[in-house]
Structures are given as C-alpha cells and as structure tokens.
Design a protein around this nucleic acid. Structure first.
Length: 878
RNA sequence: GCCGAUGUGGCGAAAUGGCAGACGCAACGGACUUAAAAUCCGUUUCUCGUAAUUGGGAGUCCCGGUUCGAGUCCGGGCAUCGGCACCA
C-alpha cells in the first residue's frame, strides 16, 4: 500500500500531545477541598451522553457530540472556569450478555475489552476528559450506589398533600407496600420471547423490541414497577425552567400525556344487572368511566368496557355469555399490532346489562369493545357518538342512538354532529347555553355534590416497568420471605450477581439468576429477588457520580454535588453562556446527545433526580439545565449508516489518513450541530488542507523534507488591516462557540488563514491569538505550533492550555469608510463609499450626486429616500 | 389522522427584515514541474447581451399578504424527514 505523504506531520505530534496531557493530567478538575482547587473560578459542567461500549467500536456519530462538548470544555477552561468534563461507560446491556450466551465468555470480560477499545479511540481523537473520573455502571463500586438509590425509592412514597417523595415512615396508612415508589404488580407486560425478558413501553417500537426488532406480546407477569406517574405533573411543569429544545419538551409532554377530565360513576340498572352465576358483591356496583368531556354527559348513549375489564364477568347476562366469551377469544388471538391497526373496523359485543346515566337518568346499554384499552383511564368509557369520532363510528355500526349536545359556533344543531371542539351545550338540561369550559366546570361540581363522580387528571404515561429477566444487570437489593418483599440493609450492598456458566434465559420468564440456588438462598427463610434492573438504571444518575466518582461513603459527596450541579444566580456560573441564563434550575450546564433518548433516559433520569431531591440528597430539582441534540450523520450516499449498506465510516481510518484535528474540525464544519447531514471524505480533505495551510504559516519544509520554523512569523507590529483580520475571528469564534455554531467559527478562521497565506510576513501578535482560537477545535496542531513559537520567541509562557482566551478589540473592527449600496425601488443600482461618520443628509447628498443614479433618476419623481446607516440607501420613485 | 422539524447553486452550507450564495467540496482555466501529485493564483446561481466593462433580466419549494425593502415576518398550499397514534 503506498502511503500518501502527510501534508503536515500530525502522525508525529498528535500522539505526542495526547501522551503529554495524560502524563501531566492537564484536564483533571479538582473538587472543592482538593489540592489545586481554585474557589475563585466559576464552574462549568459539560457532559456527553456516555456510550454503551459495543463490540464494533466508535462510529462517526459518537464523536460529533463529543467534539462539540470538547470544544466548549476547552473554551470554558481558557475563559477561566473550573470545568467538569467527564466520560464513562453505560456498560450493562444485552449485547454483552448475548455474546456470553453464544460463546460462554463472561460479559464482564467482553465489557472490559470493549471499554479498552472505546477508550483508546476517544483518546486518539484528543478529547480533554478528566479520566480520573471515569466510571463504569457495571463496576460494583458504582452499582452499589445504583442499588442504594433503588432502596431510597423503595423506602419512599409520594405524599399527595405535599406532592413530594417522602420516607415511607411519614405514611400513616396500614399498607405501606401499596404506596411505595417501587412496588410489585401483576400487570400485562411486554414480553419478548426472543430476548427472554419483559420490556418497558418505551422499549417497544411498533410491536417489536427496540433492541433486535423481535416480536413482543402482552402477558400478565409479576413485576417491579416504579411509580413515575406520581411525578407526571412535576415532570411536565418543571420542563419550563429548562433550556432544552422545544421539540424535546413537547415529546416529553406528549409522552406523559396529561389530560384533565372527570371520573363519572354509572350505576347498574336494576333487575338485569347480575347474572345468576355470580352473586352480587356490591349493592352499589357502578361502572366508573374517565372522560375529558364531562360536559357531553347528556349525550352518552352507551357504555363500553375494555374486554379485559374485571366487571365484565359480573355484569354479562346469561344470554350474552356466549357472544362475550367468543369476542374475548377473538381478541386474545390477535397480536398487539393487529389490535392497534387503526384502519380496522370497530368491533364489539353487547353484554346484556344496562347502566344509568347520572345526568339524564336514561338507561343505556353496556358493551365491550377492543377500542377501549384497559391500560388507560379506568378501562371504561361513556360513548358520546355525537361528539367523538370513534364513538360515532361505533354507534353507526351498531345502530346506537346519537344525541347532539354541543353546538358548534355558527352551525345548526344538525351540522354539529361529530363536532369535537369547544362550543355551546344544548339538549343538556342544566348545562344548556353554557360554553364547553363552563359546562365542564358546572357538571363536575354537580357530580361531586351528588357523589356521582369527580374531576381528575389522567396520564398516558404508565408506571415504569423496572425488572428484567436478564443476567447482565444490577441485582435488586431485595429479599422475599413468606411471599413478602423486604429491603436488604445498606450494609449488604453491593449485591453482586452469582457466577454462572450458563447465561441463557430460561424462556419461562424465570430470570437466569434463579439458576444459582446457592446465591438465591439468603437465609433459612429468605430468598433473593432474581430479577435485574433495566439498562436505564445506571444512566439515571451517572452525571451525579461524575461529581465525586471515588466516594465510597456516599453516592456523591454533598459539597461536590452542590458545587458542580449549582445553578444560575449562585455566582458559580460563567459570565459567558448567555443561554444558560434562561434556566430556572441548576444542574449540568450543557448536556449534548442524540434525540433517541428524548422519552427514555431523559425522562427516567429526571424522575430519579426528583426523588433524590425530595429526599434531600441533591441540591437541584432538575439534572440538566441545558440540553442540545446533535443531528444524525448519514453515509456518503445520504442514507443512514449501516453495515448492510456498506456506508459506515470508521473514525480510526479517517484519523490515520487525515489526523485527529482534521477529523474533529470536519465533524464540526459539516453543518449545524443539530442538523442531520451526510458524511463526505472530500470534505474531510478540504478541512485537512486548511490545517495544512495553518501549519505552513508557521513552518516550512527544507529540501530533505524536514519541517522547520519559517521566518515568515515575525515579532512586528501588525498594521491596521492585519489587526482587523485577527480581531474579526476573535469576535466571531467567541460568539459562535457560545451558540454552538462551530461550522461558521471554522469558516471565519479559514478566512484569516487565507488572508495570511502567501503573506511575506505574519505578525506574531496575530498568530498567537489565532492559535488560541483554533485550540478548542484542533488542539494538537495548536499546541504544537504554540510550542514551536515558544522555542523562538519569548513573548509567551507555557503550553497553550494554560493561556487566556483573547478578547476582541472593537476599535480594530471599525472601518473609517464603508461601502453603501444604492437601490432604486429595492434594486441595487450603484455603490458609493462614504465616511463612517457621515450623517443621513450627507449620505443622501453623496448618493444623489452619483452620475449613474442621476441618469437613472432622470424624469422620475422621488417619493421617498430610506437611509440605513452603514448599509444602504433606497430611493423610492413613482 | 395528530404533533413537530426542514425546504437556498452540481454538493455540504452562509446571511440582527437591508448587496442572496460567506466558507468548503466538486468542476474549469492558469502558474510551478521533464511529468504527475502536492502547492499557489483565478473563474464558477441561471440566463440574455457586448469588441470590452462597473451591462440587462430572473432567482431562496408553490400561491397570496405586510413592508421603501422579505430567504427571513403573516396567511394558505405542496414535498421530505422525525415523533405519536383507537389515550376516551
């Protein structure tokens, strides 16, 4: 293979500087109280979403966000901040376990190898992480605290009075297990046979597992749940105080799916109620429905229960028993996917019983239908076909009566059929004439007064299914005794999983940990919980551990947490980063990662954080004050990168050919950080050419091919033009880093380099600040050239990492004269050069004196002249 | 179906309501070279025109509006991408 000659010797100095940073621990950030800690500096916590160390190594998508944060980290350091910029490994997960099933190699070994590979790749890109803070979620020293936090959640409840998590001791009731934030429930769960585990709703995409794409079926199982729904309101409300993309906030709001409405009780009509086989259990038996439109109660002409609703068995009359059984059998044979297929026609069966509409006293039939889901609301609805699309479709199919009870504005009663918006109540007794919001209020008050219902709030969000039937995850710090669960004492942590030879899932839903009977046996009477936690557990709090990763006494030291997670107004914020000024809460100052975690990690972590906050373990109610999503990088063909398409770009190859600096700069030069954009090797080459030109500004090559300091750089006074060329990028690069517009920052530096290329002499006073600007983007070449200049001149001391970020001098940016565009009716007709100090009248006079303009204006009437100082003049003629 | 984002040269993209296309890629021409690579210089939105230039016209997905002036603001479409999807 004939190696291309390198345009500059990055292959020599890049590893050299990486080794130097490592040896000198240049980027280590001391904690408050540690030697070398400077309390006078503001803090800045800039965080990446830590990766799962897969066997295939880094792809070019990872370093996109990582480069962005590295630029910010290096920049904020040069601006005089204490910068926390850590990296770690989210290493529990399926791939290592599945590899173990195939080969017998323990997941810990696989994980160790993959971490080593990832780490060396990240180091080769020159990221300025504080590696002393490296963490790994599979390390017992780490997951000891994951288990500890679980115990805190387990030993807490949500007090509806205070709307906060509180220790279970403050709960006065008789059955604490019914209110714990971590509880066991027998619920229909997403079971994936192929993976041998249950999955959270968030992990199921179109009826398939997010990992692997295997079929997922609903199946009732006994599982650990976390009561995230209790925090629904706060998870929505406190989004307001965060500087996050609106689209992500919206995604979370929609996922939580808060809807205000009412629960309404429909009593069962007498006589036909109970089939003889089941004796009445409750004389006041009623069906409770949830609706967001209690104002349409008078229009409810039937009730629908979910087929799985527990009252169905009690209420079905003998003559409908057969039809109901048949319908339920049909439903259960259908896959989740078929059931939710929207184009499907409505189906359902009358169960023979009637309910009583509490408002109209009418008896209305009770049906079951699969368009009513057991998992939302109360699993029962009132059918209001006049004002609900689905109900209308159902009523038309089964010839149920349709009443119009809301009139749309400007439409007749007839025309209002199917109207689902806000209007005016009609045919609704006491509600007639009221607007929809008024009617809602009134009917809820009436229902509450009569004990027929109450106003309530429901969420689409389900409690978080928290257990998995896997080996490679955190064991629960829980034991079972006589059918009851109990927490292990903190002194038992960490609970380490047993050594196994066979990692295979049992296939029955019994977790692999159960195979080790010795491990399972905790005492004569007690057995260990054998489920493990989902992969998300470790990432729910890793950003806290980074603040104090070596602490074995506490999950994070109080002082370290309150320092690094502090928020605006504490005096610890850097003066820069204006965006953060909009944040109401503290937390990580800048968090960069992909959109794919919008409703998974980012919601779970906020939930855990709030529990820890309520219990007084952390100082802020939210973990991440500012979030930015980087866009996906596509292959050269504009398609998503994938092995099967053969369009995957490997960072190692790019770095070998063009160097780490070129790789970093290209990733940032491609386009706006948040945008999806295709890779281009030609583009990398272009950026590499730019860096080579930078190199040749300072260095020159002799006949033998050796690089030596060039004589072009001289300690001379820059002239006015050179000062402008130097100070324009100081201003632009600074503001562009603040707004994360790295592509235009690089453009501006290219302009500087183009201007100095071929200049016989480059002032040292221009080169020095330029190298500092370049340093966050291309730290190796900037460090090397800085050191080269140090060899020859004595105008600066130490490495570039110890310098101060330059400040633009506006005086050098102002021109004496500016070119002004002259428009006639908005079209450019001429340009004139005027003094910067020229007044509007002077400019007008100069413009009107222009022979060209005079010629064009001949015979025309001037209606108006608009003068924009320093920019243009627009002459409006009739 | 609902919600959101995006739409600018051959390509990646820039443009506080004020010269559309900065910067880069590709392409073309030139210098250097025995030659090539590398490097450097120049041209490059489309179109009409001129012996020549500081020449004319059109142009930011489409249709309308606001404005002296719109890629940018407003209204209505279309297209692409992403999320949710019988959520009562």
């Amino acid at each position: 293979m004939n190696e291309r000659r390198k345009p500059y010797p990055f292959d020599q100095f890049e590893p050299k500087w990486q080794a130097m940073w490592e040896e000198e621990q240049t980027f280590h950030a001391p904690n408050p109280g540690d030697p070398g800690f400077d309390p006078g500096k503001p803090k800045f916590y800039v965080l990446d979403m830590f990766p799962y160390p897969s066997g295939t190594g880094l792809h070019v998508g990872h370093p996109e966000g990582y480069t962005a944060t590295d630029i910010v980290a290096r920049y904020t350091r040069l601006c005089g901040c204490n910068v926390l910029h850590p990296m770690g490994w989210d290493a529990f997960g399926l791939p290592a376990e599945q590899y173990a099933i195939r080969t017998g190699q323990h997941p810990a070994i696989t994980t160790r190898d993959n971490v080593a590979k990832f780490k060396s790749q990240l180091k080769a890109i020159g990221f300025s992480y504080d590696w002393q803070r490296e963490i790994n979620t599979t390390d017992p020293r780490y997951y000891k605290w994951t288990q500890w936090i679980f115990l805190k959640i387990y030993n807490s409840w949500f007090n509806p009075e205070t709307k906060r998590a509180e220790p279970i001791a403050t709960y006065g009731g008789t059955d604490p297990d019914s209110v714990r934030l971590a509880y066991v429930a027998d619920v229909p769960v997403n079971w994936c046979q192929e993976l041998g585990t249950v999955l959270a709703n968030e992990e199921v995409v179109e009826g398939k597992s997010e990992v692997g794409g295997f079929p997922v079926v609903k199946r009732p199982m006994r599982q650990w749940m976390l009561r995230i729904t209790a925090f629904g309101d706060r998870l929505i409300e406190e989004l307001e105080g965060l500087v996050w993309p609106e689209s992500i906030k919206l995604l979370q709001r929609n996922w939580i799916g808060r809807s205000e409405g009412a629960e309404i009780h429909f009593k069962i009509a007498g006589g036909t109620v109970f089939p003889p086989v089941v004796p009445p259990q409750d004389a006041d038996a009623a069906i409770t429905v949830f609706t967001t439109r209690p104002d349409t109660l008078y229009g409810a002409t039937y009730l629908v229960l979910s087929p799985e609703h527990p009252l169905v068995d009690q209420l079905t009359t003998a003559d409908q028993e057969g039809a109901v059984q048949q319908y339920r059998a049909d439903i259960s044979s259908k896959s989740e996917f078929e059931r939710t297929d929207l184009s499907r026609e409505k189906t359902g069966v009358f169960i023979g019983a009637y309910g009583v509409n509490p408002a109209s006293d009418r008896e209305i039939p009770i049906w079951i239908a699969d368009y009513v889901l057991m998992g939302y609301g109360t699993g029962a609805i009132m059918g209001v076909p006049g004002h609900d699309e689905r109900d209308l479709e159902f009523a038309r199919k089964f010839e149920l009566p349709v009443f119009i009870v809301v009139e749309a504005k400007g439409q007749t009663e007839e025309e209002s059929i199917g109207f689902t918006g806000d209007g005016v109540a009609v045919n609704s007794g006491m509600l007639d004439g009221l607007t929809t919001p008024e009617a809602k209020k009134k009917i809820i008050a009436w229902l509450e007064a009569n004990g027929d219902g109450c106003g309530t709030v429901r969420y689409k969000l389900r409690d978080w299914l928290f257990s998995r039937q896997r080996y490679w995850g955190e064991p629960f710090p829980i034991i079972w005794e006589e059918g009851r669960h109990a927490a292990l004492p903190e002194s038992d942590l960490p609970v380490v999983p047993p050594a196994l030879d066979d990692f295979k899932p049992t296939g029955t839903g019994e977790p692999p940990l159960a195979k080790s009977t010795e491990w399972v046996r905790y005492s004569d009477k007690a057995r260990r919980e054998t489920n493990t936690m989902p992969q998300w557990a470790g990432s729910c709090w890793y950003y806290l551990r980074f603040c104090d990763p070596q602490n074995d006494e506490r999950f994070v030291g109080r002082e370290a947490e309150s320092y690094w997670m502090a928020g605006p107004g504490t005096g610890s914020q850097p003066v820069s980063y204006q965006q953060n000024a909009d944040a109401t809460f503290g937390g990580v100052d800048l968090y960069v990662g992909g959109t794919e975690h919008a409703v998974l990690h980012l919601l779970y972590a906020r939930f855990w954080h709030k529990v820890l906050f309520d219990l007084g373990y952390v100082s802020q109610p939210e973990p991440f004050q500012r979030l930015v999503n980087q866009g996906i990088i596509l292959g050269e063909d504009g398609q998503k990168m994938s092995k099967s398409r053969g369009n995957v770009v490997n960072p190692d190859d790019v770095i070998a050919q063009y160097g780490a600096d070129a790789f970093r700069c290209y990733e940032m030069f491609m386009g706006p950080l948040e945008q999806m954009k295709p890779w281009s090797m030609r583009g990398v080459e272009g950026v590499a050419r730019f860096l080579a030109r930078v190199w040749r500004l300072v260095m020159e090559e002799n006949q033998a091919g050796e690089w030596n300091l060039s004589n072009a750089v001289q300690p001379i006074e820059p002239d006015k033009a050179q000062l402008k060329i130097t100070h324009a990028p100081i201003k632009k690069v600074t503001s562009d880093i603040e707004t994360l517009s790295f592509n235009t920052a690089i453009s501006q530096m290219m302009i500087l380099v183009n201007a100095f290329t071929n200049a016989p002499v480059v002032p040292l006073a221009a080169m020095r600040p330029f190298l500092i600007l370049l340093n966050p983007f291309a730290p190796h070449i900037a460090s090397e050239l800085w050191a080269m200049l140090n060899q020859k001149f004595d105008d600066a001391e130490g490495d570039i990492t110890g310098q101060t970020w330059p400040v633009a001098n506006e005086a050098w940016l102002v021109e004496d004269e500016v070119e002004i565009v002259v428009q006639i009716n908005g079209k450019v007709r001429d340009r004139v050069t005027v003094s910067i100090a020229a007044t509007e009248d002077e400019i007008k006079a100069i413009v009107l004196a222009s022979p060209k303009i005079q010629a064009l204006l001949a015979g025309q009437t001037i209606k108006k002249i608009v003068v924009v100082p320093k920019k243009l003049v627009n002459i409006v003629v009739s």
